[in-house]
Design a protein around this nucleic acid. Structure first.
Lengths: 318, 318
DNA sequence: CTGAAAGCGCTAACAT
DNA sequence: ATGTTAGCGCTTTCAG
């Protein structure tokens, strides 16, 4: 493997000159420039970015650590973050904490010693965020994606889960539904809690009464319809529960995320602005890398409503 | 941010000694060891891994570059690779080429200059693999995850797609199905081609005749049943096509991957051994890092058949 | 067992 | 505009 010194030697110039053509910081005569470029080509020399990073004290590398790679919102989120990173010449690397706090700690430590310029974090819930504080205090900016870490005042971007659920209720009400049920998932998280709030708010706004006989846990989803024959619409916290609800012509089913799955099944779905969340979070992070003193930013992005064509058509035919 | 020198100073020892306690390569008297550890704690010093890497010429970092993060087999594959990497003290970072060859090239270059110790690659199809050859020839081992790069003789691990499809046909035949259809997806890839082969082989083995009126393209999937009322089973290259096939009591539907989705919909599914593939690929990679001269290894792992309980029950009730 | 010093590959003054 | 050189933070001989 080649070094800058070999290139310099072979091009008959000094290492400084080679460095100058590489970084472009200092102008180099066209004659030498060409000669250097030529040699770089011939040797197919790849600068050692480690050495550069050691010297300039920045790696142009950002770590994104995510809690659950199987989450359906994750791919788009990653793409958004990636696009924003490339735009500013950062390399984005992804790490998976797999819902384990100790893994998250290891990862953060590894990113710290490797001196990434910043971290995008979808933290695991858990009160102990000392490992996050550690990297932050060491001067590595962290922005929280989805869940804020308690007590750290991080920049953060989240989806407006409550608003999304509320919009969905409004839509169903506008479609004429007066009796709308709710089925919890079996692994409730904070996002679901906010969605449930939105559901209740939505009912209130539509002058519908909240009625907890219309609310079921995942296990007893099947009973819900039996208990409530008048139910005309139901919202599912977990899209994968859809098949077991059964599908009758007059029952509207709405759920969250999983856009492909939902469109295949023709379910109404509240979808997070995943791409934008990733993009925005990365923008915030890079901003903060450049200006550590900027005031804290927290942004909440609205969700969208995905309505299957068939449903939409039925509605306008009314 | 702290350096090893500060630690040494404050502990009243030389930097060499600090380094020795850090690496453990050279024994240090318990007295000094404790003193150093103490200071490290106090300063909460994190060694600069860049400097270390520059010196020892290895980063303990492996890049996994994947073509499509939305692929349902990807999360488990990643977990397998991650687990194998941690076990040997490597940090695995993921990069997404997003089906774009130029992105893949950029990523490979970035990993090269950052001197990762090895690369796990799910390559985009495309004849030009010069960028892969470049890193490989620069001494960075590459193992192919799924598709081999033409002409490079990489170690590689793949799933036995043909065998999986064949097993599925056998299963359906054993269930009594004599007329089994096939629906292509609308974005056929090499895996699908191998599955289709397996389908044909499976028919032959079951003494069923291949009949191309029983084969449909994605667009005309709906017609298939109309054209072939005697069809009792159908295999779908794309699971998301399942809903549009419609579901009648006597039609068996089988498809590939998407284990959660398929179990929710109670579809028979051929599933790749994703975790094992990731794990095995990482093992091969690390082996090769340690022994660049080892002969080429290519491994093909068998797929499994996921059978919904209801289907299984129905079968044993016969 | 411990300390001193050379050097990994690169950049950034500084001098010419 | 170009060359020289002193580090960046760490590991690793080599002496003691």
């Amino acid at each position: 493997v080649r070094t800058i010194r070999e290139v310099a030697q072979r091009a008959g110039v000094s290492v400084g000159t080679v460095s100058n053509v590489l970084t472009g910081a200092v102008p180099v005569s066209e004659r030498l420039r060409q000669r250097v470029l030529q040699v770089i080509q011939e040797l197919d020399y790849q600068p050692n970015h480690l050495a550069r990073s050691l010297k300039v004290k920045q790696t142009q590398m950002i770590g994104m650590v995510i809690r659950n790679v199987a989450d359906p919102v994750f791919p788009e989120m990653l793409r958004g973050a990636e696009d924003a990173a490339w735009l500013q010449n950062y390399l984005l690397v992804l790490l998976n904490s797999d819902e384990q706090v100790d893994r998250e700690q290891q990862i953060l430590r590894a990113l710290h010693t490797r001196r990434v310029d910043g971290i995008l974090l979808t933290a695991n819930p858990g009160s102990d965020s000392s490992h996050i504080r550690a990297v932050r205090d060491a001067g590595i900016p962290v922005v929280a994606l989805e869940d804020d870490a308690p007590g750290l005042e991080l920049d953060c971007v989240t989806a407006d889960h409550a608003g999304g659920a509320k919009d969905c209720v409004r839509y169903l009400a506008e479609c004429g539904h007066r009796s709308i049920g709710w089925v919890h998932s079996d692994s409730a998280d904070s996002a679901e809690a906010r969605r449930f709030e939105g559901y209740r708010d939505g009912l209130r706004d539509a002058n519908l009464e909240f009625d907890d006989t219309k609310v079921a846990r995942a296990e007893s989803a099947g009973d819900l319809l039996a208990r409530n024959p008048r139910l005309t619409a139901v919202m599912l916290a977990d899209p994968l529960a859809a098949p077991q609800i059964g599908r009758t012509a007059d029952l509207a089913v709405a759920t969250f995320d999983h856009p492909r799955f939902c469109s295949a099944l023709e379910l109404v779905s509240v979808v997070q602005p995943s791409y934008d969340m990733g993009f925005k979070a990365m923008e915030l992070l890079i901003q903060r890398i450049h200006d550590p003193a900027r005031p804290r930013a927290t942004v909440m992005l609205p969700c969208g409503l995905q309505i299957p064509q068939a449903t939409e058509a039925a509605r306008s035919a009314e």
